[in-house]
Amino acid sequence: MAAIAPSRLATLTRLRCSIFQTSYNPTSIRTGAKYLRARLRGPSMVEYYPPEVSIAQFNRMSGGDWRIVDPQEDMRLADVEAKKRRGKGAPKKAKSKGAYIVQLLGYGICTSGC
């Protein structure tokens, strides 16, 4: 059996591509088409978690006209208040970086590793 010339095979491939509407790409060069062909995944990603309206969100939406009592949130705020009264609240925000070091020095903590 005689060997078929490569040019003939290429012609055959090109013809096949034109018949089946595929792109003729003999050197298998990357065209990036797969990024356009793939389906968009965003819409289904967004729907993963069931929609949920929290009490805080609802109160914010109502515009302060009337609010639902949230026992958990009220308890949290009460705890924060109680901690503040015992002097265990969040520390004050430092005005500058130096202020923090001064504060540390006030406690007798050296920052330079001595």
């Binding site: 990357r30 990036g32 968009l40 965003g42 819409p43």
Partner: peptide, 25 residues
């Protein structure tokens, strides 16, 4: 949730850039 919304909002633009960046032609 933040990531999901971000992906959804930027997906088409990202795909377009990906197509250009990966296209050897």
């Amino acid at each position: 949730i933040k990531a999901r919304n971000g992906v959804n909002a930027n997906e088409i633009l990202r795909r377009a850039y990906l197509y250009v960046a990966r296209n050897q032609n």
